[in-house]
Simulated scan of single mutants.
Amino acid sequence: MPRMNSIMERWVQSCRRELLDRCLLWNEHHLRHALREYERFYNQHRAHQALDQAAPLRVVPDLIKDPGRITALDIRRRDRLGGVLHEYSHAA
């Protein structure tokens, strides 16, 4: 399938640039763990330009247009894979 090939090439390129070029992998078990974490990050948290900066498996939040609410946002960061990947979310 020609279209699937281009999608996988893009995923491999992103995985390599965002994960594999930034960490030292010790063995196959460590590689598989890192790839599982990256897959979860890619599908649930990473912003995608084609989806208007939303993640594929996450609902797009409503836009905040009120300047008072924008300045009062409390954003939390969660590190994954020892700080190689970062997830950002609104604090409840």
Rank of each mutant, 00 (worst) to 15 (best):
M1F: 09
M1P: 10
R3D: 10
R3E: 10
N5Q: 11
S6P: 00
I7M: 05
M8K: 05
E9H: 02
E9G: 07
E9I: 02
R10N: 05
W11E: 00
V12M: 09
Q13V: 03
Q13Y: 11
Q13G: 09
S14C: 13
S14E: 15
S14H: 09
S14T: 15
C15I: 12
C15M: 13
C15Y: 13
C15E: 14
R16S: 14
R16H: 15
R16I: 09
R17W: 10
R17V: 14
E18C: 03
E18N: 11
L19A: 10
L19R: 13
L19F: 09
R22A: 06
L24M: 08
L25Y: 00
L25W: 01
L25I: 08
L25D: 02
N27Y: 03
E28T: 03
H29M: 05
H29N: 07
H30S: 02
H30R: 01
R32C: 06
H33K: 13
H33Q: 14
H33W: 13
A34N: 12
A34M: 14
A34Q: 13
L35W: 07
L35G: 11
L35T: 04
L35Q: 11
L35K: 08
R36P: 01
R36F: 08
R36Q: 09
E37V: 13
E37D: 06
E37M: 15
E37A: 12
Y38W: 11
R40C: 04
F41R: 10
F41A: 13
Y42Q: 04
Y42N: 08
Y42D: 04
N43G: 08
Q44W: 01
H45C: 06
H45F: 02
H45D: 12
R46F: 03
Q49L: 07
A50D: 07
A50T: 06
L51I: 06
D52S: 06
A54P: 07
L57D: 11
L57C: 15
L57E: 13
L57V: 11
R58W: 02
V59Q: 14
V59T: 13
V60E: 08
P61F: 01
P61R: 07
L63P: 11
I64V: 15
I64L: 15
K65D: 14
K65F: 12
K65M: 14
D66P: 05
D66F: 03
P67E: 15
P67Q: 15
P67A: 15
R69A: 15
R69P: 06
I70F: 07
I70K: 12
T71W: 00
T71I: 03
A72C: 05
D74I: 11
D74V: 09
D74Y: 02
D74T: 04
I75C: 01
I75T: 02
R76N: 09
R77F: 01
R77C: 11
R78K: 15
R78S: 11
D79V: 01
D79N: 10
R80E: 10
R80L: 13
R80K: 12
L81M: 14
L81Y: 12
L81G: 05
G82Y: 09
G82N: 14
G82T: 15
V84L: 14
L85T: 09
L85R: 07
L85D: 05
H86F: 00
H86C: 00
H86R: 01
H86L: 00
E87I: 03
E87W: 01
S89H: 06
S89P: 01
S89E: 07
H90T: 02
H90I: 02
A92Q: 05
A92C: 07
